[in-house]
Write a protein that binds this DNA or RNA. Structure first.
Lengths: 253, 253
DNA sequence: TATAATGGTTCTGCCTGGCCAAACGGCGTT
DNA sequence: AACGCCGTTTGGCCAGGCAGAACCATTATA
């Protein structure tokens, strides 16, 4: 997307305010005004306008994100048909493995978590639905990129770069493409603490009828608790078969 | 909430635009401009500003709600601690009954659906997470209001009125309070096609330690398919015990 | 093909309305 | 009782949002 020529600054400000409120987990007028670099009265007016429609709510002396966004958010998620078909499979996989299972889609060259399910031993990460991540530094992202044409992948890397998330993140382009080749061959990706230290995961793409990835699902587990045999021998098959179910269902209906 | 004195019109316009896009399930600039009563260029600027941050996305020649809202929406939902504790119970209830199960909270005198789960025979309604409804015309709302002080209920009815949703909706205030008395006694509410024609439901409040309702869960089923015995004799107990589990867990942690 | 119609994008200048600063009022603290 | 901190209100200035028209791109019609 090229630069906007005439951005509506007021809208930008509103969005910034909302993001700040979420970051701070609730905030007061002055606090927000400081960060946004606009006067208190302006912030106050924004908040009141949003509050009118319950996009924010005032609780005591601080403002919070309102449930009105749930309508838009849930709607946006449901527009990805993959969500509906994948959800049961993700839940099931979480229950069976006992671990953390995630569903990710690619939008504008970045990954967005659509859904997660936690098994009873699942690690508690800070991941949340709607979170955006780089594709190259997660198993999920690699699984998706492996099933995209090379030029598309190049374009994405050009745009977003390959910043290191941990010291194991692949930051060299050639190495990365070799990795993708391997993923394509075995049809699943392994994330060896490339996204978060101490966390490994197995990710499998969900493709359309033409071997193009639409999304990916993964199982994440702490390197310590899960030994290599379970991780490298058993998990891949479980994730693969879950993804397979989703693919079949998705490409039929 | 009193009227805002200095609403930020630009923000209002943005919100209107977003709501229109959702309503129309995707829309073009001209289409939106018509409805919002502003020029095409203004709408265009708004959309571009939103697109910059992926709050909207352009797909072909129409704009759609973007996944950036999922972050805010999911966050807003998770701020209600009841969501986390109730979700498993709602899922389980849906599976056991095979019907549609909903979770509703009260905000500013109206009901907001937080979550739904569908059993394998569940009716397909247009309800979605984030949807706002009147409290007096749904079983869920009645269940909540029954466990609120009378003056609070009066205030809510004053503010929002008692519009009829179907010909069975209770629109008389005295009758309504009698209904609430009965609900309080049996601890569950029955919705006899008061919210939607042909749809009945059993709703049970989730209360805090002081008998004040925080939320409610319900099972909805078509009047035809489910006979009176199952509906009046069996369902209430199933919903009651599910709600009970949630209450216990919620009031402990 | 030509031509028209439709819808998205760009541009310009007017004037609204969003913002700042300052003042006010409510609360809690010293 | 005076101070300090915050949210809210007010007034006035001028940035910036909007309308309108011109400009493209694409599809429909003949």
């Amino acid at each position: 997307m090229a630069q906007t020529n005439h951005p509506v600054r007021t809208v930008d400000r509103t969005l910034e305010i909302l993001e700040i409120i979420r970051e701070l987990d609730g905030a007061g007028v002055s606090e927000i005004a400081d960060r946004v670099q606009v006067g208190k009265s302006a912030v106050h007016n924004h908040l009141n306008t949003l509050a009118q429609r319950e996009y924010v709510v005032k609780e005591g002396d601080e403002y919070h994100i309102g449930l009105a966004f749930l309508g838009l958010g849930a709607y946006a998620r449901n527009r990805n048909e993959i969500y509906d078909t994948a959800r049961p499979a993700v839940d099931k996989l979480a229950e069976e493995t006992g671990e953390l299972v995630n569903l990710l889609v690619e939008k504008q060259g970045r990954g967005i978590f659509l859904y997660k399910a936690e098994g009873d031993q699942a690690v508690q990460l800070g991941t949340y639905a709607g979170q955006r991540v780089h594709l190259h530094s997660t198993g999920l992202g690699k699984a998706i990129l492996a099933f995209r044409p090379r030029e598309e992948v190049e374009a994405i890397l050009d745009e977003h770069g390959m910043p290191a998330a941990t010291d194991k993140t692949i930051t060299d382009r050639e190495t990365f493409f070799e990795e993708l080749d391997e993923i394509r061959e075995q049809r699943y990706a392994v994330d060896r603490e490339e996204g978060l230290p101490g966390l490994r995961c197995i990710a499998v793409p969900i493709t359309d009828g033409h071997d193009r990835a639409l999304a990916a699902i993964s199982v994440s587990c702490p390197s310590q608790r899960v030994d290599d045999e379970r991780f490298f021998e058993e998990l891949p098959n479980e994730v693969l078969s879950a993804a397979n179910v989703v693919e079949l269902e998705h490409n039929h209906s």
